[in-house]
Computed example of a mutant assay.
Amino acid sequence: MRLLEKTELGGISLKNRMVMAAMTRGRTDTNGLVGEMTIEYYTQRSGAGLLFTESIRISEEATGSPLTPGIFTQQQIEAWKKVTTSVHDNGGVIIAQLWHTGRVGHSVDRNGKLPFAPSPLPITGMQHFTSDGMKDYEIPQEMTIPEIKQTIKDFGQAAKNAIAAGFDGVQLHAANGYLPNQFLAESANQRTDDYGGSIPNNARFILEVMQELISAVGSEKVGIKISPFNPYAAIVLNDPVATYNCLIEELNKLDFAYVEIMRRSPYSASSENDGTHNEMELFGRKIRHIVIANAGYDKVSAEAELEKGIAKLISFGRLYIANPDLTERFEKNASLSEPDRTRIYGGGEQGYTDYPFCNE
């Protein structure tokens, strides 16, 4: 089974090609500190070749949802050290996903402050989960050039903090409608300065953040996640293929470790999944870095993807929620548990660390 083959990523040896994808879990305290449950959660899943953390806020300004972790205070760094130490002690490799939510937030959880975004364009057609229940999205504040530059520096500092916390690397979360993705999309970015108004300008923010991360912690410790056709959070690009071709062409000029491509759900009824918009074929073949394929894979489809030779690793989200020993289950052809969807995004041990192992 190719999924169980050893491989390397950024100079780090991985015991298999299975990756746990980053997933928002919402189980910190009010200071963004992870605790014993989080240590147990990641340690349980350290049989994966690589673990991506849940999204981690790079700064207070990056806050979007309640009870999500940060890595911008010394207390947060020390809390994450306990996670990375336990994962390493159990033979695992773990990378921090760095997160700025941009307009995907609400003042309720931001001390009354409106979220930042490329342009003052609110998300429509959906509501945001807050500590005070579901709320309509607010009109965000347009970022000034100094605020953009400071945010780029915040990403660099967060990367340094992640390495200080013992992580094996960092990943820029440039997918799923969050701030870097917002700069790419005309539905969120109508700027007319250096950071908007054309595809190259729309891509500038992501490229400058990537350069900052590489400078901060070194090329082998940096990667990025993209989601070319994911419309979450009202993300609409005028020409997604041209935009991502441009972004990839520029990313190919940078020295870093990998690109994780999140494909649109294979279960989507959208015509964009009719085979003419296959993210791996359209973009994966053009990427000169190691490619990690993400979203909706099972054992059979993951093996088939690896056989194509585009992706070198496959990341699994939902399957890892309910199957902490997913690698062993694949190896033994054991049955898979289903996640409790009511407890994915918050709560206690139930639906988090209480899923059984196949030998129990």
Rank of each mutant, 00 (worst) to 15 (best):
V108H: 03
I77E: 02
F129S: 08
E147F: 05
P120Q: 13
P122F: 00
F72E: 07
D89R: 08
L67P: 06
Q75S: 14
D89K: 12
Q76H: 11
P66F: 06
V108A: 04
T85S: 11
H128L: 14
I77G: 01
K113R: 14
G133A: 10
P146N: 04
L114K: 12
P115H: 01
Q97A: 10
S131T: 06
T63H: 04
K113V: 12
L98N: 01
N90W: 13
Q127N: 06
P140A: 11
G70Y: 09
G64N: 04
D132H: 12
R110K: 13
H106R: 01
K135W: 02
Q141R: 12
L121N: 01
T68V: 15
Y137G: 00
V93F: 12
E78H: 10
G105H: 03
P146V: 06
D136T: 03
P69M: 15
I139M: 11
P118A: 07
V83G: 01
M134W: 12
P140W: 02
V83Y: 05
I71V: 14
D109N: 03
T101H: 00
Q75G: 11
G112A: 09
G64I: 06
D89T: 04
P146R: 10
G133K: 01
L67W: 07
I152D: 07
P118M: 07
T101P: 00
F116H: 09
S65H: 08
Q76Y: 07
T101V: 15
P146L: 07
Q127E: 03
W99Y: 11
P122G: 00
G102C: 03
I71S: 02
A96F: 05
G133I: 07
F116M: 08
M126N: 02
P146M: 11
G70L: 15
I95S: 02
F116N: 07
Q74Y: 13
I77F: 02
V104I: 10
G133P: 00
I94Q: 02
M134V: 14
I95L: 13
G102T: 08
H88W: 06
P66G: 11
T151I: 08
I77S: 01
R110C: 05
M143F: 14
S131N: 10
P69D: 13
R103A: 04
D136H: 05
E138S: 11
D136F: 09
I139E: 01
R103D: 02
Q150E: 14
W80M: 09
L67D: 07
S119Y: 01
L98K: 02
P140Q: 10
S131D: 15
M143R: 04
S86Q: 05
I94V: 07
H128Y: 13
T130E: 00
I94E: 03
Q74M: 10
D132M: 10
G64K: 01
A79W: 07
G133C: 12
Q141N: 15
G91C: 15
Q127F: 00
K149P: 10
E78L: 09
I95F: 12
P140T: 11
F72Q: 05
N90C: 09
I71L: 13
T85I: 14
Q97V: 09
I94M: 15
I145Q: 04
G91T: 11
D89Q: 15
G92H: 01
Q127T: 10
I95C: 08
E78K: 08
S86D: 06
D109S: 04
Q141L: 13
W99T: 06
S65C: 13
P66R: 06
F72L: 14
